[in-house]
Amino acid sequence: MNKELVFKRVAFLSATLILIVLVSIFIMLFFDAKSAINKYGVYFLVDSRWNKTIEIKSTESKTNPSKLIAKTSKTNDDVSMNNDNLFADDSSVLGDSESLDNSAGDKAVDESVDTNTNVKTDTIFGGYIPIVGTILSTLIAMTFSIPIAMGIAVFLSEIAPDFLIKPVGIAIELLAAIPSIIYGMWGLFYFAPIVQNTFGGSQMSLLIAGLVLGIMILPFMAAITRDAMNTTPDVIKESAYALGATKFEVVKDVIFPYAKVGIIGSVVLSLGRALGETMAVAFLIGSVFKVPGSLTNPTISIPVVLANNFGEASGDMMSSLFYLAFILFVFSFITIGAAKFYFLRGRR
């Protein structure tokens, strides 16, 4: 009897561990990102500067969001002392402009202020470019893979002769099992040159990364879309065929409406996976902090920023990386959560 209770408790704790791990991922990422969140705030999301050293001059402090400087003061005492200076400078400059017909003495003060403030530099981190890169590469991947995945799913559930369903199905699932780093290698050495020759642009680009990402999520999306389509009862399909519908009409007017929710769920779930994919993209996106002017330009995505910089980072950069990781986690949690809760609910 006692053993029974112990077993139940242990099982309960193991189940609770999942909750604990997820909550601690949230907390740890937020905790480690906190200094960056405090320093850059929401502006981080639209700031395209990454690892840019800027000088905090008194004149610049007016154009900069003052919040940024005020927040800096929280991070360490040294800066907060400088910060006091800075505000003092600010007022002196203001005073300067008020009395424009100033004396030589005033100018000297002004200069000394300048040299004083030039010493203070700050490194700014903003997440705009990786966020845009992540969204764009995922969009390209989805645009490429949705039609093909639908085609494969329709083929497997309606068209394929019986002897083909199994082997093709297994082949598609094996394609899903291949580690992502292999897609990256293959993409880099074999697929990228073809894309480059066809569309021009650089050796690594947003387009190449997006396409390889699309090829990577293709089998996953196809497999779960097929499962969703297969939930359509045969009776309904047969009724439609009996009324003289063609296969396409059955797919369009019977299977799609019936399995709509499941199919959308599959697509959203694949989107969630694509958002967080690292290795396939890391080889191909070019890892350049630049807003891509065209699809064939290199850029960077959040997972790739993390993969490339986590090892050596410290201070503000580290905290900014955690900020990015937190953003990515929240993004994909919401996406995958939406897919699971809203669309795939009844499919268990």
Binding site: V21, R273, F341
Partner: peptide, 21 residues
């Protein structure tokens, strides 16, 4: 549901979490 979500969570984020802990 949480376990299902965790199954699809970005692996790099799990790496970041383990790094922190």
């Amino acid at each position: 549901d949480l376990s299902d979500i965790m199954m699809s969570a970005p692996s790099i984020v799990i790496g970041a979490f383990v790094f922190a802990v």
